[in-house]
């Protein structure tokens, strides 16, 4: 079994109002010097295969088809 992590983040230049609100809240808690906060998503997947190359290809397809909206988001794949 392969354990993988997919991280989805907003592309540069896409407004992230949630990140902005978190940035403001961190400032209100007294954390100074925060340049920017961008919020993203993490997906942990377990795949029933021993073939990492196939898993990687499948994960890429999953990102393109569902996990990320590539109009506004980037994704990256890593293995545990």
């Amino acid at each position: 079994m392969i354990k993988a992590r997919v991280t989805v983040t907003l592309k540069n230049g896409v407004l992230d109002p949630q990140g902005k609100a978190i940035e403001g809240a961190l400032g209100a808690l007294g954390f100074d010097g925060i340049g920017q906060v961008r919020q993203g998503k993490v997906f942990d997947l377990q795949i029933e295969t021993g073939d990492q190359a196939k898993a990687e290809a499948d994960l890429k397809a999953m990102c393109e088809k569902l996990l990320a909206n590539t109009v506004i988001e980037n994704y990256s794949i890593s293995f545990a």
Binding site: V14, L15, P17, Q18, A21, N69, V71, I72
Partner: peptide, 10 residues
Amino acid sequence: PGALMRNASL
């Protein structure tokens, strides 16, 4: 085309 994101006001 495009995408619909969280309202700017949240």
